[in-house]
Design a protein around this nucleic acid. Sequence first.
RNA 1: GGAGAGGUGGCUGAGCGGCUGAAAGCGACGGUUUGCUAAACCGUUAUACGGACUAAUCCCCGUAUCUCGGGUUCGAAUCCCGACCUCUCCGCCA
Length: 424
Amino acid sequence: MIDIRLIRAEPQKFIDAARNKNIKVDIPALLEVDSQILDAQRELQDARTAQNAAGKKIAKLTGDDKATAIAEMAQFKTRAKELGDLIDRLQPKFDELMLLVAQPAAAEVPLGKDDTENVVLRVEGQVPTFDFEPKDHVQLGEALDIIDIPRGVKLAGSRNFILKGAGAMLHQAILRLALDQMTAKGFTLMTVPVLVKESVMYGTGYFPVGRDQAYLAERDQMSLVGTAEVPVTAYHTDEVLSFEDLPRKYVALSTCFRREAGAAGKDTYGLYRIHYFDKVEQVILCRNDEQTSIAHHQEILRNAEDVLRALELPYRVVNVCTGDLGQGQIQKYDIETWMPSRNGYGETHSASRFHEFQARRLNIRYRDESGRMHYVHTLNNTVIASPRVLVPVLELYQNADGSVTIPKALRPYMNGMERIEKRA
RNA sequence: GGAGAGGUGGCUGAGCGGCUGAAAGCGACGGUUUGCUAAACCGUUAUACGGACUAAUCCCCGUAUCUCGGGUUCGAAUCCCGACCUCUCCGCCA
């Protein structure tokens, strides 16, 4: 949510922001409703002032004087009722439009229409070449009997899968490595609900824009989350923290559910784009300060890179352009990991900073040294998401005989296993 | 799922339908005192929005808020109805 006062002051900025982010919102209409509401509120307030003053007099009066005063007050009351009703009619329109206003991107965000215009900032690690014909992760996984997509589809439809044996272990090992790295860095580990109230989805900015990406449990007016960012960020909803409690750093592992609406026919092969997966997510709530926010953004980016470095995977960092930015995000860095089967880099991480956008919707504030209230800033990034990351892990660590070497960092989490081989 | 009880400020806990944005206590903060702590004493202690004035998101004025939404009333934290939530007991259960 954006402060309406900022929109009043610089409407063009928000018109541009919406256009750059490909979000439809009628700012002039918003301002029109806003001014109508504001006028009505001002008049209502005056009517109430008069009504209250009259009411206080009545208590002291008797007889005719009292009757006269009551009659007089009735006028204010009627007017107040009219204005109140007017506001009640206008408010839903205002709220609806406010939920669509986009956060303008930071100055350092490149202008662009979609992900093809993201700007590569850094390339890390060596993209390997094979001296044999490499297989893709599905071929490898099926041959090793660690990935079973057909049965996943049998149970749950397209974009579903089952990991078995060493495949499931590898998945858990990666998640555990990520969790351990994060807790070692002082992030507080949490478990969180993955089925949440719609208000939580609105609060984090996944609703109303993006509502079609979520699975809904409509009978209970709940929604399955697409990321632990949602419940973790909303953890402090309606709370007032102390500046001494900031920054708050959290990490959580959750299953993530995504409908992938509108992605029909896109990335249909393998474990890249699927309806459920597990993800370790990091979330930071910090002071309302641009530089502090930026510093934490770098921090969560590094945290993710540390995991990829431990896994010894080649990746690159991109500065996501305006057209590929979410409604609330002010800036986003994606990490893309090399995936041989795609013959290119594929997105594995997404580090966003939001300024107050989510905090306003969730009403998460803190009191600073001088006692003033501010909304916190929120940030989040993937630590690791699996099985998507199994795509590069399996493909990059494959051997000519079809076995897969287990990355050194994961061996302690796999009872010392060094490679996954076809069972005899 | 069945049966009860209850929802007041950071917490505990008072609140006759007008004088209650709300007693009191605790906590917190500021100050006095102090070798340092502690104690004692004094003071402060909600948020949002609007208005006026501004260097100011400080003061000042106003409106709203005692879970939320309706109703009764000239007037409701206080009466009535509904919703939501919490707690206790029973049943079931990973």
